[in-house]
Amino acid sequence: MLLNEVDTMSEQGRIDTHHHVVPPAYRDWLARRGVAAGGMPIPAWDAATDIAFMDRHGIATGVLSLSTPGTHLGDDEEALTWARKVNDHCAETVKDRPDRFGFFATLPLPHLDGALSETARALDELGADGIVLLTNHRDTYLGDAAFEPLMAELDRRGATVFVHPSQLPAQPVPGLPPYAADFLLDTVRAAMNLTVSGTVRRHPSIRFVLSHGGGFLPYAAHRISQSLQHHQQVLGAREGMDHDAVLAGLQSFHFDTALSTTPQTLAALLSFAGPERVLFGSDFPYASPQMSSYFIEQYDAQPLDGALRAAIDRGNAARLLPRLAR
């Protein structure tokens, strides 16, 4: 879909591709386990409050997804049970308000067999619009060979995969909440891992969407690609990806604008990703209504031309999520 084809779509309202769900039973389960989201308390959520937030900001549809920690807290069967519960909750929410909600289905990774079975159930039976994966699942990043069967299946289906940061496999710095900066690094790590492992090259039909403008990837992509090329030279590797190949892999992702819309950040993102790979995102409700509103207001104040704004607001997401384009 070209930019001049989406000029008329802005009036239909935004599609928010970074928009979280917190089923009450899931929130209670995490509370009983004493689990937070990267140092952040798990927020309350209900559909009515969510719709009110969307109405204030011109959002027609929120694509619901589960944030970190997902559902795998150490037990495979428990993780699968909760993934099914979360996906059933999302499917019912969409059924009640198909005009206002879509959803990315949750998988119980690193439980691979459970993830494959839930992928089929969510996409074939529940009508999920795509899949949400964490950058790392219990310290295993998405490009790991252990996840290759899932990637092959997602590629076969041409799935849209929303990638959300997780707990960084490192100790937090005292006084610095992990969600403030560690999430950004975890997203960059995942993008590098998916690229260098060859996952994005082997599975070009997967449409990966990176959270939060890709972390700091747009800003540091050339340094990353040069560094990886140099590292291979130091190791004397006979095969590997050169600077151009790494950069092409990093630019193959899509990116949402959640918390990433100040003039400096958005300019870097658009320059790196191009106008057809940037999608609107709010990060509600993990980002508070005040925080989400701040970044949406920053975005609204940008002097973007109408075609570009329509593409970010709706057109690019509609191309990846065809049910929501109708």
Rank of each mutant, 00 (worst) to 15 (best):
S271I: 02
A307E: 12
D139G: 01
S117H: 13
P43V: 10
G249Y: 02
G214C: 11
A318H: 04
T49K: 10
M9I: 00
S166M: 12
I312C: 15
V234D: 03
G281A: 03
M192G: 10
D76Y: 08
E276Q: 15
R27V: 02
P322I: 08
P177C: 09
F101T: 10
F284C: 04
V21L: 10
G215P: 02
E78N: 01
P204F: 02
V163T: 09
T119V: 06
L133S: 08
E5H: 07
L217H: 12
R84H: 11
S260Q: 05
D186N: 11
V94P: 08
L304G: 02
T106N: 04
Q232T: 03
W29P: 00
L185G: 00
P263K: 12
A31L: 02
R207T: 03
G198L: 01
R314N: 02
D244Q: 15
A159C: 11
I312R: 06
P69D: 07
Q226V: 10
L259Y: 00
A180E: 12
A60D: 12
S10P: 02
A36I: 07
R323P: 11
G240A: 07
D155T: 10
E239Q: 15
T265W: 05
P289N: 00
D300Q: 03
L142H: 11
T119D: 03
H230S: 06
L194P: 03
H89L: 04
R121Q: 05
A91M: 05
L235S: 08
D186Y: 09
A318G: 15
E276Y: 09
Q12A: 01
T8Y: 09
G215C: 05
P263F: 07
G62E: 04
A83Q: 07
Q251H: 08
G214D: 04
L154C: 08
L64E: 06
L154P: 13
D155F: 12
A325G: 15
Y26I: 05
M54C: 15
F284D: 03
R207Y: 01
S205I: 08
T199M: 12
T199W: 02
Q290R: 09
H243C: 14
V161Q: 14
R314H: 10
R309N: 13
M241V: 05
G13K: 05
R223F: 11
S293G: 04
D124A: 03
R157M: 11
A31M: 01
L154M: 11
I131P: 06
F284K: 00
D96G: 13
G34W: 00
L150Y: 06
H72V: 03
H231S: 09
L126F: 14
G58S: 10
A307Q: 15
Q12L: 10
R33P: 03
A311W: 05
A180C: 13
H72Q: 08
G306L: 12
G127C: 07
T187H: 04
S10T: 00
D113I: 07
F295N: 05
P23N: 05
M291A: 13
L279I: 01
G249S: 07
P303K: 05
G114M: 12
L270N: 09
G70Q: 15
F147P: 13
R97Q: 13
W29D: 00
L134P: 02
R314S: 11
G62K: 06
D50G: 04
A36S: 12
P165T: 07
D46P: 14
P108Y: 03
M9R: 09
Q233W: 09
H19K: 01
